[in-house]
Structures are given as C-alpha cells and as structure tokens.
C-alpha cells in the first residue's frame, strides 16, 4: 500500500479501493496473458515498467543497464506465467525477478560500489513562488539527498525503493528477499538517521553533501 495515500489531505479508504482495483486489473491481464494473448502482457508491462526499471537501476546501480535488466525480467516472468499462482500479486513476484537479475548484473560487472543518487535536474521546483524560496527549497533538497547518500547501503536501498521507486513495504521486502518487518525496521532507523542529519547545522551538512553529489 502506498504510504503517500496517508499523507495529509488524502483519503485512505479511496487509496485501499484504488489498490484493489489495480490488483484486479493485473489479475485480468495475467489471465488473458496465460491464455496466450501477448497484447494483454504488453499492457501489464506498460503498467509496471516504470517501477521495474527503477528497481533494476537502484539495485544494480547502473542506469545504463537498467532497461535491459527490466526487459529480461519481463520476458522471464512471461515464460513463467503458466506456473504463476492464481490470485497472487504480480508486482512483488516481478520485482523479485528484477532484483535478482540486477544483483547478478552487478556481480557480473564486478561492481562492488555503492549506489550514489544524483540530481538529474536542478534541485528546486519550478513552481516555487520566488527566487529566494526556490534557492531555499533547492538547498533543503541537496541536504536531504546528501543525508540519503550517507545512509548505510542496505538502508539507502530500502529508502530508495520505498520512496523513489514508490514500492510498497511488501514489494520492497519481496525485491530484497527480506521480511516486511525487517523492511519496516530499516525504514524506521533510516528515518531516524535522516532526521538527525537534517537537524545538524546546514554549513556542516552542505559541505558533506557536496562530496557525495
């Protein structure tokens, strides 16, 4: 379930309904795909491509390989569809396949490096009301990003999958082969570290953040 649905101003009941509706659509598409309709599977890929490729990127640490990994995972998942349990959730199963292939790719490439998240766009929203506010918002985002990058590897990956790839706790658990309780505890510890980092004086943090960016 998407925690974002419980942020102020949203309706949890509606979010639950939406989640069930989405899962129902997946079930329908899987059923048709199991009958041999490739276009149904193509639609399933369209629905989950973004999350899949982001899991591939975040686990492998390679933006360049992420699409290939996700592509292979979707093909493997299709070939295994005859044995997919009726009523099982597709996304956790898919993400476990994606993450496994992404880990293999990282090992094959001999990469032992850590994922470092970087800004692709200027860290200030274009819809901020004025130049000073934009600068402040940008600085806050830089500090938060530096704090995320300073997290231990496991915690950073859990945070990235949960918030940046927008996976549910159950989906993060499936992707990483962890129990949901472990994911929750890692998230809680990560929150605590992030809060501590953000509470430090900005001068100190911005200097550290520059080294990660």
């Amino acid at each position: 379930m998407d925690t974002r649905a419980f942020l102020p101003g949203t309706d949890p009941a509606r979010a639950v309904y939406q989640g069930a509706k989405e899962a129902g659509l997946d079930d329908e598409l899987i059923e048709r795909a199991q009958l041999g309709f490739v276009d149904a599977y193509e639609e399933l890929v369209r629905r989950h491509r973004r999350a899949a490729v982001q899991v591939a990127y975040l686990v492998s640490g390679s933006r360049a390989e992420a699409e290939d990994i996700a592509q292979d995972a979707f093909v493997r998942a299709y070939m295994a569809l005859p044995r997919f349990r009726r009523g099982a959730r597709f996304r956790p199963w898919l993400f476990a396949i994606v993450a496994n292939l992404a880990r293999n790719a990282r090992r094959s490439a001999g990469r032992r490096n850590r994922l470092v998240l970087e800004f692709e766009h200027h860290p200030s929203g274009p819809d901020e009301p004025g130049p000073e506010t934009r600068v402040l918002a940008g600085e806050n985002q830089r500090r938060l990003m530096a704090a995320v990058n300073a997290l231990p590897d496991g915690a950073r990956l859990v945070v990235a999958l949960r918030y940046f790839a927008d996976l549910s706790v159950a989906e993060v658990a499936a992707a990483l082969g962890l129990r949901p309780g472990t994911v929750k505890s890692r998230l809680a510890r990560a929150h605590e570290r992030l809060r501590q980092a953000l509470a430090e004086p900005p001068e100190v943090r911005s200097a550290e953040g520059a080294s990660h960016a």
Partner: peptide, 12 residues
C-alpha cells in the same frame, strides 16, 4: 517523495 522529480529516474 518530493525528490523524485529531480532524480529523474529511468522510466522504461
């Protein structure tokens, strides 16, 4: 969550 737009993660 607000970091997502500036991270520009791959979309596939």
């Amino acid at each position: 969550y607000d970091l997502v737009p500036v991270l520009a993660l791959p979309e596939g």
